[in-house]
Deep mutational scan, measured.
Amino acid sequence: MKVIFLKDVKGKGKKGEIKNVADGYARNFLFKQGLAIEATPANLKALE
């Protein structure tokens, strides 16, 4: 799953980066902790 990092995550990505991560890791950790959001077209446009 492609995500946009909202904060730096050690070993995974830095704020503003778009990367592929495992679906479960994204849903169960990154999204719940507020560290990333899904890289949807609307979210990508908002990032610009």
Results as ranks from 00 to 15, higher is better:
M1S: 06
F29N: 06
L47G: 05
G11D: 09
F29P: 02
K19Y: 07
G13H: 12
A26S: 06
E48G: 12
V21Y: 06
N28V: 07
K32I: 12
Q33T: 10
R27M: 10
F29G: 03
Q33V: 11
G34A: 07
A39R: 01
I18N: 01
L47E: 06
D23S: 15
K45H: 11
F5M: 04
V3T: 01
K14I: 10
V3Q: 00
K45F: 08
A22D: 15
V3S: 00
D8N: 11
K14N: 10
G16D: 06
M1V: 14
L35M: 08
L47I: 11
E48W: 08
K32F: 08
L44D: 03
D23G: 14
E17T: 06
I18D: 01
G13L: 02
K14A: 09
K32M: 12
K7H: 13
K12Y: 15
T40V: 04
K15H: 04
E48Y: 12
A46G: 10
G16Q: 02
N28G: 10
I4R: 02
I4G: 00
G16A: 03
K19W: 08
G13S: 04
F29I: 13
D23E: 15
L30Q: 01
A46Y: 13
A36G: 04
G13A: 12
T40H: 05
A36M: 01
A42V: 09
L44W: 03
N43A: 11
T40Q: 03
L35W: 12
V21A: 03
I4K: 03
I37E: 05
K19A: 10
L30H: 01
P41K: 09
K12I: 15
A46V: 11
T40W: 03
K32Q: 09
A22Q: 14
L47T: 08
L44Y: 04
Y25L: 08
A26M: 09
I4N: 00
F31Y: 06
E17M: 07
K2E: 09
E38K: 08
K12W: 15
G16M: 06
G34V: 03
K10D: 12
A26N: 03
R27L: 13
A42E: 15
T40D: 05
K45Y: 09
K14D: 05
K15F: 05
E38R: 09
V9T: 04
K14T: 09
G13V: 06
I18L: 06
G16F: 09
A46N: 12
A39M: 06
K2Y: 15
D8W: 08
V9M: 05
A42M: 09
E48P: 07
V3G: 00
F5I: 01
F31K: 02
E17H: 05
E48N: 10
A42W: 05
V21T: 04
N28D: 13
D8F: 08
P41E: 14
N28P: 01
Q33A: 11
I4T: 01
D23N: 13
L44K: 05
A42S: 12
A26R: 03
I18E: 04
G11N: 09
L30S: 00
K10G: 08
V21S: 02
G34T: 03
G16T: 02
F5Q: 00
D8A: 07
V3E: 00
G24M: 13
E38Q: 10
N43Q: 07
K45M: 14
D8E: 08
L47W: 14
F31M: 08
P41V: 11
A22L: 11
V21I: 10
G11I: 02
E17I: 04
L35N: 03
E17G: 02
D8I: 03
P41L: 13
N43V: 08
G11H: 07
A39E: 02
K14L: 12
K19E: 04
K7E: 10
K10V: 13
V9Y: 04
K15W: 04
D23R: 14
L30Y: 04
E38T: 05
G24D: 14
L44F: 04
I37V: 13
L47D: 05
F29S: 06
G11L: 05
P41Y: 11
A26T: 09
L30G: 00
N20E: 15
L30N: 00
A22N: 14
F31A: 02
A36Q: 00
L6E: 01
A39K: 02
A26H: 05
A26Q: 08
G34R: 08
G16P: 01
A36P: 00
K10R: 14
I37M: 11
E48T: 11
F5L: 08
A46K: 13
K45G: 07
L6R: 02
G34D: 06
Q33G: 08
Q33I: 09
E38M: 09
L30I: 02
K32S: 11
F31W: 03
K19Q: 09
K10A: 14
V21W: 02
L6V: 08
F31R: 02
K14S: 10
E17K: 03
A26V: 10
V3R: 00
N28F: 12
